[in-house]
Design a protein around this nucleic acid. Sequence first.
DNA 1: GACCAGGCACATC
DNA 2: GATGTGCATGGT
Length: 232
Amino acid sequence: MSAPPATLRRVHRTLLDAFGPQGWWPAETPCEVIVGAILTQNTAWANVERAIVNLKQARLLSIAGLRRIPRHALARFIKPSGYFNQKAIKLKAFIAFLDREYHGSLKMMAREGTPALRQKLLGVHGIGPETADSILLDAFGRPVFVVDAYTVRIVTRHGFMRGGAKYHEVQEFFMERLPRRAKLYNEYHALIVRLGKEWCRPKPRCGACPLNGDILPNILRCRQAHPEYTVK
DNA sequence: GACCAGGCACATC
DNA sequence: GATGTGCATGGT
């Protein structure tokens, strides 16, 4: 694979200069991170926020709250985040897992080693690689690089990796070239998502689209060409 | 009205 | 192992 470590550091620096620190994960507790990670699957974050607000107002945004609320009722509260029936099942599956493996305690879960915890999370219905890694990184501070659809687009469209690269290959690509620091991985992933949100949306995309061609000069050129796409 | 969004499980070949 | 499909709301 092309792209030496310095290139990935340069991309990070450019994104940080362009967008500033992103302050992820937008949550107050590990429980809220986990709920958000499940609710945001293939869903715009703005819709997830509505669902989170609903849960908070009903005092359900806690392990105990999610445990006591029946699944059908839970689905109603998270409706704005889409796929609400599926996601209600997923949240319940996580609680059942937590109860089964860690006596319902996130603190006990936090004592588990990263590789073992990752394997266990992947065994939970509704938790795939990205959700598991988001939980590891953002709820438990583990140095695990989170890969999402934007990340794959960036590394393949810039020729860092071949098309069709798998999740773990993209993850290794970053982790082998960057220091194993949770803070860095957190900021890097958030910046990639920010870039994705702010990328030229109409198709065909213009040549300055920062997900096409060379990311570094194109970020600023795209913002100049399309100020209307700047995300608040 | 079409397309997209911070995926995942499941069926089928 | 690769590919296709269902899941569902809300913004553009």
